[in-house]
């Protein structure tokens, strides 16, 4: 049982790392940031983008701000 739990924990770790590396968690981070922003009331809250809008916005921003890849 403990072995199984260990394997499960390891697999979750790998999945977490892969998601982070490929940037799949970007939307979650955006939502968390947005909530914190709204909670602090520091800014006129921007409307929260839906997941689809967010990913479109993300690649569109990359169009305007390209990043080099190294040799």
């Amino acid at each position: 049982m403990t072995l199984l739990a260990g394997v499960r924990k390891g697999a979750r770790g790998v999945a977490w790392y892969l998601k982070g590396l490929l940037g799949e968690d970007a939307y979650e981070k955006y939502v968390a940031h947005h909530e914190a922003d709204a909670a602090s009331g520091a800014h006129a809250a921007h409307p929260l983008m839906t997941e689809r809008e967010f990913w479109r916005d993300q690649t569109d921003r990359q169009d305007q701000n390209p990043q080099g890849r190294c040799c």
């Binding site: 799949e24 939307y27 990913w55």
Partner: peptide, 10 residues
């Protein structure tokens, strides 16, 4: 990613 399942990168 654009039209079917946005964000499912892995």
């Amino acid at each position: 990613l654009r039209f079917f399942r946005p964000g499912k990168i892995t």
